[in-house]
C-alpha cells in the first residue's frame, strides 16, 4: 500500500464516520426525527472516500440523492448535514433541501440531485465552465447503475467526450436501482463501463469495496483528465447493505446475497489490511472508533438542539433577493 499512517487513518476515519452517521440517521428516521425519503450509503463508503480523498479542494463534486457519504467525505461538517436531515435552520440549506438535496458550494459540493440522471448534464456544464475559464479543475460526477438508462447519461457522455471536458464519470454500480436488478434493466448486463467505449471514453471497472483501489484508479484518471485529454469513466462495483430507502422490505433480493456482500465490508477489509501491514494498530482503530462516535453524537445533539427555520425563510431564495418578482 502506497499510504502512510496519516493517510490510512484519514481514509479509515472518513469511512467509519459515514458508516456511523448513516446508522444514526436510520435510527433517527425510525424515531420520526428525519422525514421524507432517506437513502443510506452503508456498504458503499469506500467509493466516496477513495475518490474524494484524491481530489483537490477546488475540484467539483456532483452526485445523486444518496448523497450523505459524498458530503461527509468532502468534509461537510456532520453537524450541518445532520441538521439538514432534521430540517433545521442550521442545516446546509436551512432545512429547505433535506436528505436528497445537500449542497455546499464553498467545498465544491454541487449537490445531491434527486431526479435520476439529472446531475449528469450539469456535470458536463461545470466542466465546460472550467475549460472555458482555463482552469484545470475536474468535475467528479457520481451516479448509479439505474441512471445509465436515462437518455441524459448518453447525451452527457457524448458531449463530454466530444469537447474533451474534464469530467470523471463515477458509476456506483450497486447492482440495483431501487428493487430492480441491473441484469434486468441494462442490456449490457453489469459491465456498464463498456458503454463508455461507444463515446471513446477510457473506462475501467474496479472493486468499489476496496478504498485503496478506488483511490489509486481515481488518481490515475485525474492525471489524465487534468492534462486536457477529456473525460474518464470508472465503474466501481459495490453493494448497498441496507434497503433502497429506510422503508424498503427488500422482497426483491435474498438475504444470502446481502450476507455474501457484507463479508466484503469495505471497512473491515481495509482495517484488517492496515493492521496486517502494521499501518494501523488495534489501539488506533479503537481510538478512531471513539472519535467517530463522539462526532456523530455531537452532530445529533447539535441538530436536535437547533432551531426550526423561521416561517419567513419559506420565501427566501426563490429568486435573487435583490430582484424579487
Amino acid at each position: 500500500m502506497n499510504l502512510d499512517n496519516g493517510q490510512v487513518t484519514e481514509l479509515y476515519e472518513r469511512m467509519l464516520l459515514i458508516r456511523r452517521f448513516e446508522e444514526q440517521s436510520g435510527r433517527l428516521y425510525m424515531e420520526g426525527k428525519i422525514k421524507g425519503f432517506l437513502h443510506l450509503y452503508i456498504g458503499e463508503e469506500a467509493i466516496a472516500v477513495g475518490v474524494i480523498s484524491a481530489l483537490r479542494d477546488d475540484d467539483y463534486i456532483i452526485t445523486h440523492y444518496r448523497d450523505h457519504g459524498h458530503a461527509l467525505a468532502r468534509g461537510m461538517p456532520p453537524n450541518v448535514v445532520m441538521a439538514e436531515l432534521m430540517g433545521k435552520a442550521t442545516g446546509s440549506s436551512g432545512g429547505k433541501g433535506g436528505s436528497m438535496h445537500l449542497f455546499d458550494v464553498r467545498r465544491g459540493f454541487m449537490g445531491g440531485h434527486a431526479i435520476v440522471g439529472g446531475q449528469l448534464p450539469i456535470a458536463v456544464g461545470l466542466a465546460l465552465s472550467a475549460k472555458y475559464k482555463g482552469e484545470d479543475k475536474v468535475v467528479v460526477c457520481f451516479f448509479g447503475d439505474g441512471a445509465v438508462n436515462q437518455g441524459e447519461f448518453h447525451e452527457s457522455l457524448n458531449m463530454a467526450s466530444l469537447w474533451d471536458l474534464p469530467v470523471l464519470f463515477l458509476l456506483e454500480n450497486n447492482l440495483y436501482g431501487m428493487g430492480t436488478h441491473v441484469d434486468r434493466t441494462h442490456a449490457g448486463g453489469r459491465d456498464i463501463y463498456m458503454s463508455a467505449d461507444a463515446y471513446k471514453i477510457p473506462a475501467a471497472q474496479i472493486d468499489g469495496m476496496n478504498v485503496v483501489e478506488v483511490r489509486e484508479t481515481t488518481q490515475q484518471a485525474l492525471e489524465r483528465i487534468r492534462s486536457g485529454k477529456g473525460p474518464v469513466f470508472i465503474e466501481a462495483m459495490t453493494y448497498r447493505f441496507v434497503g433502497h430507502s429506510v422503508q424498503d422490505p427488500q422482497a426483491y433480493r435474498d438475504s444470502s446475497e446481502i450476507e455474501q456482500w457484507r463479508a466484503k465490508d469495505p471497512l473491515d477489509a481495509f482495517r484488517e489490511t492496515c493492521i496486517a501491514e502494521a499501518l494501523l494498530s488495534e489501539e488506533e482503530t479503537a481510538q478512531i472508533d471513539e472519535t467517530v462516535r463522539e462526532t456523530v453524537a455531537e452532530a445529533t445533539r447539535f441538530a436536535e438542539e437547533s432551531q426550526e427555520p423561521s416561517l419567513e425563510s419559506l420565501y427566501d431564495n426563490v429568486y435573487d433577493r435583490t430582484r424579487q418578482v
Binding site: G87, K96, G98, L314, Y315
Partner: peptide
C-alpha cells in the same frame, strides 16, 4: 399552493 418550490422542513411545507 404558496408560490415557492416545496421546502423539506415539515412546518414550512405545511405553510406552503
Amino acid at each position: 399552493g404558496v408560490e415557492v418550490p416545496a421546502p423539506y422542513n415539515g412546518t414550512l411545507e405545511a405553510a406552503a
